[in-house]
Design a protein around this nucleic acid. Structure first.
Lengths: 144, 144
DNA sequence: TTCAAAGTGTAGCCGTGGCTACATTGTTGT
DNA sequence: ACAACAATGTAGCCACGGCTACACTTTGAA
């Protein structure tokens, strides 16, 4: 079968989007984590990320290498990881989005622990339009 | 580094969960799609799924094989795909969850098209507790 | 100073989800 | 009956995110 370009199916194309999301997800999670660790500890090492994501340092190393190719971070062998301007911007955007989702969940009455977990999973799948709405509701405070 | 079992990190474990989700996501999406196609067309072929997800038939074939190993579907070579009882249950649960998320998004004022797309991405990352709350809000109708 | 521990890097494996290209089977119309 | 075409299957490639095992730097304490 040929790779269906624009299928005549009833489903427009939401799946494409879901899949593309996965590509970006990792980068966003990592720059966000790096930014946080940088703020809290002054420097960010591979080990820190490995601990943070509960994965092996090997996985982290490989991903960081890709982040460097994408010009999101800068690193030298055996040296700490730093964010580029581009990386910082992405980190900030990710953190803000994360925050909005988290506060939104709190606003609709989800407990803090659950909200923290769900925000992690949800944040990458919220369109700008929905995010905007989430923000409004979060700012409106508690929901009856 | 050792594979960090229960890290002392501040982050409890939300990442584990996010990752485990990915494992189940595909199965849920597929049984849900199969169920829908079965309802609409009476039978579900590999081609139908390929069109539905906008991927090649090869990808579908491999995934369906795994679904069969997981006892979610039954198939014979060159024959249509059928759901097992287990598969039907999972499909129903997935569809219900999907519906709740979708209607919830509508209830908070998201337009139908955006809600459809976002529901796809979000549904797999909503905890039971949050889903319950989503359902309540969806049933409550429009939100001011 | 030197040496052990902690941190990084590298090689190489696995599963999953993409793909193309080619082989095979089913179906359908003439 | 059979040729064409549609649907499936198979082989084999890639990227990504996991891992273990082992090699190599850095760093800090004795």
């Amino acid at each position: 079968m040929a790779p269906p370009k624009s299928s005549t199916a009833k489903t427009p194309d939401p799946y494409r989007r879901t899949r593309r999301d996965h590509t970006t997800e990792t980068a966003e999670d990592y720059v966000e984590a790096i930014d946080g660790i940088l703020t809290e500890q002054g420097e960010c090492r591979v080990v820190d990320l490995a601990r943070h994501f509960a994965v092996s340092h090997v996985t982290v190393t490989r991903i960081v290498a890709r982040l460097q190719e994408a010009a999101l971070v800068v690193t030298e062998r055996y040296r700490p990881i730093q964010l580029t301007e581009k990386g910082k911007k992405l980190a900030t955007a990710s953190r803000e989005r994360h925050e909005i989702v988290y506060r939104f969940l709190l606003a609709i009455g989800i407990d803090a622990a659950t909200a923290a977990i769900d925000a992690e999973g949800i944040e990458h799948h919220v369109s700008p339009r929905t995010l905007k709405r989430f923000g409004e509701i979060a700012r409106a405070g508690q929901l009856t």
